[in-house]
Computed example of a mutant assay.
Amino acid sequence: MNRVRKIIHTDYAYKTGLSGKNVTVAIMDTGIVPHVDFGNRIRYFGDFCEGKTGLYDDNGHGTHVSGIVAGSGEASRKEYGMPVCHGIAPQADIVMLKVLDAKGNGNTRDVLAGMEWIAKNQQEYQIRLLNISVGMLPSAGEREQQELLSAVDDLWDRGIMVVAAAGNNGPKENSVTIPGISRKIVTIGSSDDGKSEPGKRGLKTGYSSNGPTACCIVKPEILAPGTAIKSCGREKNGYRVKSGTSMAAPVVTGALALAFQKYPYLSPAEMKLRLYERAYPRGEQLGRKCWGMIHVDHLVRG
């Protein structure tokens, strides 16, 4: 995470006191464990797979994603003597909705139930962001596609900025997963999927899904590091390394938590415009069909 924070230019945000404090991020994933890096900032846990009540993550993916967004790095400081491995918004609050099972699989019914819960409880938990590292291919049933797209668009219209992973089906075009093809939400690809590490972790070089969508919409809009990311593991206060656009998306979600701390009055559409205007390097400079890279310094400056 130290490498990631340098790449996306977080120094200015931290020097000015931004940390994601009082910003609540909902995460739909495989669950979360009570890792010391989350402290008492897990405000709610809902299990839409098994209906269990205690915190758990039988896969590890959700805990890893949560650490990228909001891990404090406490364990890395106290238990391992390693460089501080904190997330992008280390004081943001977390609402975890478990919609994926131990194998990382899920069904549309559980995902929609999670989104319905968010809509009903948005005000109580002051949810500003939703991170979705869950996706289905465009070949899925049309009814399921439309239900998911309608649900994320509804949350966006309610004032929740939805951030979705593009998927790991690149480099071919029109390979972005659903709900990442939504016109409204922000879809994230990996900026470093051309490196050699993915092959060692089950992902091919150029794994990050690409647009345009079938409706000729540029997707993903924003890129962030997603390869060989070290974050919280589900084993007791440990850390693990994972790769994929599932890791790139929470990098941007964490950056947006910093931005919403500074600009709490912005709507999702206004913040999305800010992302567009302040992405750097731009897509054409990177040789990629996107807006560009997340640049936190540019995002949070006046």
Rank of each mutant, 00 (worst) to 15 (best):
K98E: 04
L129M: 12
E142C: 08
Q145N: 15
L137A: 13
E147I: 09
L155Y: 10
D153A: 05
S150K: 15
S76L: 07
E116Q: 12
T63R: 14
K120G: 02
D58K: 11
L148N: 11
E147M: 15
G141E: 15
K120M: 03
L100F: 08
L129V: 10
Q126I: 06
N59G: 01
M136F: 12
T53E: 10
A113H: 13
R143M: 14
S66D: 09
L100R: 03
L155C: 11
R143V: 15
T63G: 13
A151L: 07
Y56H: 09
E116F: 09
L130R: 05
D93I: 00
G81S: 08
D153R: 05
G46N: 01
K103S: 07
C49E: 05
D154E: 14
N121V: 05
P90T: 10
P90Q: 12
I42G: 01
V134I: 13
I42R: 06
K98C: 03
A92F: 04
G60D: 01
W117P: 03
V111E: 06
L155H: 12
D154Q: 14
P138I: 08
P138Q: 08
L112I: 15
A140W: 15
Y125G: 02
G81M: 09
G60K: 00
L97Q: 07
H64D: 09
G71H: 00
L112R: 11
D58F: 06
T63W: 14
P90M: 11
G60P: 00
G104R: 00
L100H: 04
M136N: 06
G114Y: 11
W117G: 02
I88D: 03
S150E: 15
L137M: 14
Y125R: 05
L112P: 08
A102K: 06
N131V: 03
S72K: 05
G46M: 04
G71P: 00
D93L: 00
